[in-house]
Design a protein around this nucleic acid. Structure first.
Lengths: 226, 226
DNA sequence: TATTCTTTTTACAAATTGTTCACGCCTTGC
DNA sequence: GCAAGGCGTGAACAATTTGTAAAAAGAATA
């Protein structure tokens, strides 16, 4: 699964350049062009990493960083201009995981991105989060973000969806799903799965054409990704 | 690079528990189950920090501490049982950087571990303060500032809120909260958590729409930040 | 020791979810 | 095209979980 990165940078040239290089590395990239947009996009996208310019309109980098920190342990790399060198310490205190001064070399930046992301998956807890087009399944905060909107879903639905989406395109039989989600000692009607699938479909209907919950006749269900 | 910690503790239950929590925080953990093993493992592993029980077979905590001190400036945190309170001063003189009395709360221990590691050698002082919209949780002065007004809250409520707010949006099960706030040796009814949550909600009701204490059905609670 | 504050337990009401059932439509094989 | 079984769907029920108040127990304080 591709890692997602949010770039918060008001200079369109720099932003475009970053986006291009990051995409070339295989990351999925989102961009915001001021602090406020950065914060709101963060909570919608839940990226794995944030690249954050310090000088921003509306809300500066510190404010954004603080807001992000308040929403979880997502790593942040600060982009600071030369003159702002003194702010380094402050930036790190606000919770940034690393910083890099502009003008930076792409190679250098990409190395740090990779380093922080690697640290993020090892040292910190394994984040139980899956991201698809217009869909975030986050089992840590136990929420579903559909097309940017937070959505509540009962435990069984969450776990069922998480299970299916953990192995995209793989078909799960009803009994497999009962084992994985309900537990191996469950002995109820396997049609129960159908009902939960139906409720998930209602919630996820027409959100994206990139993925869907498909029925495989006499076999089970799968989370299909194109 | 993950920091390494050596746990010298003869009670396997406590040792296992410590190992689990420390690993979850991203540390690399080694364990020794008596004083002699502790010393030899220390020189083999050269950990960044040692958690050292005072009462140990073969060679007691003081002896181990002395031996460690002779090999370098590695910080040591002593684990002392209640009855050994008087030994605290002696322990610190032997070169321990901090001590904590059993039964301790995981949260407290982890805070001290982090503090000692950050300082490199000396103990103390991590600012235990969290700030959100119209809410300050200050565990140093032990006060809650809600919408600019100081508010009194009993210890358990403070710690519960602090625990939840330390990892915003993360869902904590009742048992997790009992472990972290009440301590690992607490065996009361987990519904106790509910009552404290209720009292916190009464205090924090309608203060801000930026955050709230949310219930996740069959899962637990979380401090949600938008 | 008495008093006050905090914490835990208990009991009941309220809310939410999981499951089953029923009915009708759909797919498949003959 | 028909029969048989699989699937979608809506509604109802039951079981479990949680909110809440109040009493009991325990700690801290004067």
């Amino acid at each position: 699964m591709a890692k997602t990165i949010l770039v918060v940078e008001d200079d369109k040239n720099i932003s475009d350049l970053l986006q291009m290089y990051l995409k070339r590395e295989g990351y999925e990239v989102f961009a915001a062009y001021d602090g406020g947009e950065g914060v709101s996009m963060f909570s919608q996208v839940k990226p794995d990493l944030v690249l954050l310019d310090l000088m921003l309109p509306v809300l500066d980098g510190w404010g954004v960083c603080r807001a992000i920190r308040q929403q979880g342990p997502t790593p942040v790399i600060m982009l600071t201009a030369k003159g702002e060198l003194d702010d380094k310490v402050a930036g790190l205190k606000e919770g940034a995981d690393d910083y890099i001064t502009k003008p930076f070399e792409m190679r250098e930046l990409l190395a740090r991105v990779e380093a922080v992301l690697r640290r993020g998956t090892t040292a910190r807890q394994t984040s139980r989060r899956l991201t698809f087009d217009k869909l975030v399944i986050d089992m840590d905060s136990f929420e579903l973000i559909v097309d940017g909107k937070k959505l509540e879903a009962p435990p069984k639905e969450m776990e069922l969806l998480y299970c299916l989406a953990s192995s995209p395109n793989r078909v799960f039989s009803r009994n497999e799903l009962l084992d994985e989600v309900w537990g191996y000692e469950y002995f109820g009607d396997s049609r129960t799965v159908d009902v939960h699938i139906k409720r998930l479909r209602d919630k996820l209907e027409g959100v994206s054409d990139q993925w869907s919950l498909k029925t495989i006749w006499t076999r089970g269900y799968k989370f299909e990704v194109l």
